[in-house]
Design a binder for these strands. Structure first.
Length: 493
RNA sequence: GCGGGAGUAGCUCAGCUGGUAGAGCGACAGCCUUCCAAGCUGUAGGUCGCGAGUUCGAACCUCGUCUCCCGCUCCA
């Protein structure tokens, strides 16, 4: 393709954003003084503000604007059986072994099972069964070294290289685990949740009853989740500790596709309302569905490294509630008075990564443009963040540090600070201060000049155009409220 | 996994055939009182990625090690 970016260019765009994010207080590598921790990042002064604003916006759009969606804040720790019921223990936990010659990776249990099967076929039924039960015992005991010994003792070869040159057997746990209770033993092993959804499912009846909701209704939650990602790349796109914003919507069986389409269009509209250019968004339909789903789409954004999932909308059927009903022996059913029936509701999930949304927002906001003429051409860099999302709403900047201008500036600052996140700054030249605000994405700069002392007016500079307008100090509050309110985004929904 | 390249101040980088570190920008303080990173003065900030070795002496040479980047390979 003609306008396809080269790998180097993609990398440059990402690198530039990473550098900017670090330099201007958005995102730092975690534990940087110790050379960092792979695939873990920290949010700085402005990053934490932006992330909070995004989370609050999502929450308000979900919970406040929908009467039939209520919130929940469930714990990261959950009873271990939760993850057996959800299927995560089985599908997120495999003993892996690599052949050093072919560089192929195998599931150790599959490798041994296939070997045992070949023995049985060759007539050595007993030996095959013995080996398989031995393997199961070792896996049960989590004795991976012994599993390797077993592979070597039986001289199980890689089908590709034909050698028995294996690495150690390693457990690839996509779930993190830890101990609960002060005495560490196996019975206390619990997982850090790999998704927030299960906290919603296990609380389904609690919330339904106490918030007096009727199907169809939804439960929304924002929270951290943890996954041992094997490939750790692409900045905060793929992190080991990340934050999800999920809403599980419970519907009558048979009506799930209607609601699936509903939430698909609602969520797509939401991204557009945030100002994401339409040509950078696309819907990707899953062909291969997860074990719990009967329909799934991703809302993808075109990052420099390609179209990637930001949000997923899944029709999860009644899989999760049914599983929990089975494992917990508690009824996870709802009595629907309208049709006089008891049923396990079907679930439509919307799940967006807060960190991915953050990254998408930063990419959209990052602007570099040439300004000036002739030999005075300079590059201007700024973050074109929506005022409702920007970490700092306005900077109060006295033109000079004399003549009572700082005092007047402080006065204005104090009048507005209770309602808006502001910066007051009076050092160095005004141009330098404007530029600094551009770099962190502050939408408005309020300059206090000599005329202010005469008629109580100030100039407001708009970040995107650098144009200034003179307004009275009394009008500032209303102006900022108008521009920085979430209502400006709600109106687009 | 293989090959190549790079690690020196917050950032970008200089540092000759080995002689115990420099610039620009940025930050901070002051002057100036000025509307888009202006100017002047000053200040802070570096065990030169880490560890050994050679040497009277190592940012520089040798070995090891870690991290990052590029390309290939692999995986999805």
């Amino acid at each position: 393709m003609a306008n396809k970016k080269s790998k180097g260019e993609e990398n440059n765009e990402l690198k530039k954003l990473i550098a900017h994010a670090k330099e201007y207080g958005y995102v730092y590598p975690s534990s940087e003084i110790y050379d960092g921790l792979q695939a873990v990042y920290d949010y700085g002064a402005y990053g934490s503000e932006l992330k909070n604003n995004l989370k609050r916006l999502w929450w308000e759009c979900m919970v406040r604007l929908n009467e039939n969606v209520v919130g929940l804040d469930s714990a990261i720790f959950m009873h271990p059986t939760t993850w057996k019921a959800s299927g995560h223990v089985d599908s997120f936990n495999d003993p892996m072994v690599d052949n050093k010659d072919s560089k192929k990776r195998y599931r150790a249990d599959v490798l041994i099972e296939e070997y045992a099967e070949s023995l049985r076929k060759a007539g050595e039924v007993d030996k095959g069964n013995v080996i398989e039960s031995e393997m199961n015992q070792l896996l049960e005991a989590e004795d991976l070294a012994a599993v390797k010994d077993l592979i070597e003792r039986e001289d199980i070869k890689c089908p590709i290289s034909g050698t028995c040159n294996w690495t150690d057997v390693r457990q690839f746990n996509l779930m993190f685990d830890t101990q609960i209770g002060s005495v560490a033993d196996d019975s206390g092993k619990i997982y850090l949740r790999p998704e927030t959804a299960q906290g919603i499912f296990v609380n389904f009846l609690n919330v339904q009853k106490t918030a007096r909701q009727k199907v169809p209704f939804g439960i929304a939650q924002i929270g951290k989740a943890f996954r041992n990602e094997i490939v750790a790349r692409q900045f905060i796109f793929r992190m080991r500790e990340f934050e999800q914003m999920e809403m599980q919507f419970f519907v009558r069986p048979g009506e799930e596709m209607k609601w699936f389409e509903h939430w698909k269009s609602v969520r797509l509209k939401w991204h557009k309302a945030l100002g994401v250019p339409e040509d950078k968004l696309r819907i990707h339909e899953h062909e291969k569905l997860a074990h719990y789903a009967n329909a799934a789409v991703d809302i993808e954004f075109e990052f420099p490294f390609g179209f990637k999932e930001v949000e997923g909308i899944h029709s999860r059927t009644d899989f999760d509630l049914k599983q929990h009903q089975e494992f917990s022996k508690k009824k996870m059913q709802y009595f629907d008075p309208e049709i006089n029936q008891n049923y396990i509701p079907y679930v439509v999930e919307t799940s967006i990564g807060a960190d991915r949304l953050f990254l998408m927002t930063l990419f959209n906001a990052f602007v570099e443009e040439e300004v000036g003429e002739g030999d005075k051409v300079k590059q201007r860099t700024y973050l074109k963040l929506h005022p409702a999302l920007a970490p700092i709403k306005a900077a109060i900047l006295p033109l000079t540090k004399k003549d009572g201008l700082p005092e007047k500036g402080r006065e204005i600052f104090d009048r507005l600070r209770f309602d808006f996140n502001l910066i007051y700054e009076d050092t160095q030249s005004i141009g330098k201060r404007y530029t600094r605000q551009d770099l962190i994405g502050t939408p408005f700069c309020i300059a206090v000049d000599h005329q202010t002392l005469e008629d109580d007016t100030v100039t407001i500079r708009h970040r995107d155009t650098t144009e200034q307008k003179r307004v009275s100090i009394d009008a500032l509050h209303a102006r900022l409220s108008e521009a920085c309110s979430f209502t400006r985004i709600f109106e687009q929904l």
